[in-house]
């Protein structure tokens, strides 16, 4: 390693830590979220440095992008309620008025009062000790460790794909991914079960955004397809593609587009679960010829993985977009006779 690389890595590390600190400590929540997004982007840089382009993509799309969007929209909703109840000023205008932040600090800021000072010192001390202990533990690890790289490399040719990360995700440890899809679905179920989120902060999208979305959405679809396709060989795959798809959805939602009511019944539900459903079905089908659960025969593995990934991409995209939207689509809340399909209730 050259000195330059060391300097770069060191700088990146320090910047990451500094950004994290600013994110957590900044008085203004909006600023905190923006900083968090920046943090996420730098994280993807770190992933690249660590030779993990797949994660870099995922981090940029999901970790920074979608999480950021979720955070922002949540903040907006918080402030809508605040504005309605009239107790807190909107935080959003502080992009142009940083002087105000001091005042906001008192209201929504850290909420750390002086009486906690002693506790705080104690905590800092404790956590420093923990960090030091962890650092010691990490540094005590041997500097050379192959991990499972050899196993992965040896089995790569029968996995059906040539990108080792995809191989691990969908073949070697496909079961994890299966459960992970369930977690994603679960998050949506959980959000929906909460019901009645405050209405999103609606501003008229304006011509530019409208145009932008018209231009970008097809492109995003294309990119998603590309990422999905390329995932078997190069960085990319279902999660990255799905999040790009979700980005398209988010953009559309932001631009004021709402899907027609007839799609919000079981078509939506179907789209949400198809990834998991296909995954489970494949997993079970593999048992029919006497294999193990999820045992993909090398001959079809590539095709099957692509099948699973395609379905998963769709579901991930729709799920993430739905998460962004928040509450259950409205068609579900009107009486059943208004909707055509039989899936809805209430």
């Amino acid at each position: 390693m050259t000195l330059l690389q060391w300097a770069f890595d060191g700088l990146l590390g320090i910047t990451l830590i500094w950004l994290a600190w600013r994110t957590l400590a900044s008085a203004d929540l909006f600023k905190a979220i923006v900083l968090f997004i920046a943090f996420g982007l730098l994280m993807s840089l770190a992933w690249v440095r660590l030779n993990a382009p797949d994660i870099a993509l995922a981090e940029a799309a999901i970790g920074a992008g979608l999480t950021g969007a979720l955070l922002l929209v949540a903040l907006a909703r918080l402030n809508v309620v605040a504005a309605q109840t009239g107790d807190i000023e909107s935080n959003t205008k502080q992009i142009s008025a940083p002087e105000d932040s001091a005042r906001t600090t008192a209201v929504v800021g850290q909420g750390v009062s002086n009486k906690h000072n002693l506790f705080q010192y104690f905590l800092v001390l404790m956590l420093s000790a923990v960090a030091a202990g962890l650092a010691y533990a990490v540094l005590s690890l041997p500097s050379e460790a192959p991990g499972l790289s050899r196993d992965v490399a040896e089995n790569l040719n029968v996995s059906g794909v040539s990108n080792p990360v995809t191989a691990v995700l969908l073949n070697f440890r496909g079961y994890d991914t299966l459960l992970e899809m369930a977690v994603l679905l679960l998050a949506l179920l959980g959000v929906w079960s909460l019901n009645r989120l405050p209405e999103q902060y609606e501003s008229s999208p304006g011509l530019v955004l409208d145009m932008l979305s018209r231009l970008l959405v097809p492109l995003l679809l294309l990119v998603a397809g590309y990422l999905l396709w390329v995932g078997s060989r190069a960085p990319g795959g279902a999660f990255q593609a799905g999040s790009v798809l979700a980005a398209a959805g988010v953009l559309l939602l932001l631009a004021g587009w709402r899907p027609a009511a007839r799609f919000l019944g079981w078509p939506l539900r179907f789209a949400l679960i198809i990834g998991l459903a296909v995954f489970v079905s494949v997993a079970l089908l593999m048992m029919l010829p006497g294999g193990q659960l999820l045992q993909l025969p090398p001959a079809f593995a590539g095709a099957l993985i692509l099948l699973i990934e395609t379905a998963a991409t769709l579901s991930i995209g729709v799920t993430l977009a739905a998460l962004f939207y928040g509450s259950r689509p409205r068609s579900e809340q009107i009486p059943p006779h208004h909707t055509g399909s039989g899936g809805e209730n209430e």
């Binding site: 499972l148 196993d151 089995n155 073949n171 070697f172 440890r173 079961y175 193990q292 045992q295």
Partner: peptide, 13 residues
Amino acid sequence: RYSVGGWGAPLGI
């Protein structure tokens, strides 16, 4: 003991 996907530990689950 059952190996999901037929890989077996440590590679598989």
